[in-house]
Design a protein around this nucleic acid. Sequence first.
DNA 1: GCACGTTTTCGATCCTAAGTCGAAAACTTC
DNA 2: GAAGTTTTCGACTTAGGATCGAAAACGTGC
Lengths: 227, 227
Amino acid sequence: MVHEVLAAVLRVRSATVQVLLWRRALEPHLGRWSLPGGRLRIDEDVETSIRRQLAEKVDVRKLSHVEQLAVFSAPDRVPGPRVVATAFLGVVPTDVDPDVPEDTAWHSVDNLPRTAFDHRDIVLRARDRLRAKLSYTTIGSALAPASFTISQLRDIYSAALGYPVSATNLQRVLSRRGVLEPTGEIAPPGRSGGRPAALYAFTCNGVHVTDAFAVLKPPTRARQRRT
Amino acid sequence: MVHEVLAAVLRVRSATVQVLLWRRALEPHLGRWSLPGGRLRIDEDVETSIRRQLAEKVDVRKLSHVEQLAVFSAPDRVPGPRVVATAFLGVVPTDVDPDVPEDTAWHSVDNLPRTAFDHRDIVLRARDRLRAKLSYTTIGSALAPASFTISQLRDIYSAALGYPVSATNLQRVLSRRGVLEPTGEIAPPGRSGGRPAALYAFTCNGVHVTDAFAVLKPPTRARQRRT
DNA sequence: GCACGTTTTCGATCCTAAGTCGAAAACTTC
DNA sequence: GAAGTTTTCGACTTAGGATCGAAAACGTGC
């Protein structure tokens, strides 16, 4: 049984969430758009494999985040011999613009072209995962550049979530969680003036779940009553 | 490449979280405890497969919940030919006690016996997933019986989370979310007296994420400012 | 029958943290 | 210097979880 790895690599650009797709040059589904990936080799685990294939095929070496999404295993998901796929969610920061080959391009996830196989399902699943994780993890740090103004960060969050976000609230929520800190630098004001914005950066390296997002927390003052 | 499906089936019993394991009768790792599961057949997807194998092997037909956990794919995770595993989290309510074969038994996840391969990692991952999901989904309905008192539910949550939970708070949190409702019936008081408890039931069928657990919510009054 | 222990239930209060608003600050261009 | 822009910050409101204690409803023992 063949096992393949696929990745929905997402980024935020021009106020939309985009996914990296490449146009199939072979049957079946010639001309349709599909996710990068390929066969799992015998000597690598799935995460190593997807990182290798992304680096080889589409020149995305500096993904800011990669995580498992789900296994897609419907027997007829691709024509011909059985192929089980492990799908990944990948994230690229807004400021990097990796060179991509001729046959690949970024597409808005809200306006996908004709996709191959079950890849549309995978893309939408990846988008939903990203949105959900913005609430309770530091995955925003994978979307944002190394340093940014609060307005820029608000635009990223707004685009990823699909609705307007308050800059004031965003700053307070992230600051309270201790994942945001000012760099001390100041960004030059825009062409139309306005107060120069302070630059911020995420304090965390990597994406992790924020503690204290959970409900039904453990008791604060350890009363050792028998429940 | 061989693909197998495995399940960490969890339940709460005697104030602990337990997992269903069976004792290997073959080499390698003869005598160690391992997760139920087996090979993926050519004509079934992974979820169909794990449900079939659980029903066949350990007589667990009425799982209250099943979900994908992760893919385990280290090249050397099992000796011999390569085997990639899709791991599942399964849940059984506290009140049912399925017949299990001779060579299987429930073990506390906090005190696991000698386990085979990477199955210990899978069990611990399943436990963590269960704990996290108690916060923001209705997975508690999969742990609990069809009807229960608040005290019983508190004991289930306390055991699953590993720390004492307030019955008052638990009831209010679940009620506010609209997933808990009184059945109208009354449970008989215990041997030592006490006010008889009202019986409750979950209003939801199946496990789903509670909306309104998210932070950075969409604006309530749709101000259409250009953000 | 009545005091006592037990368990459940419910209201009241506290507190943390998110959502909202508006004014002040700091720049631009005209 | 006046007007327009954008950022920043404090103050307030609101929501919802955490905690406490009293009242309710039962049994038991004297």
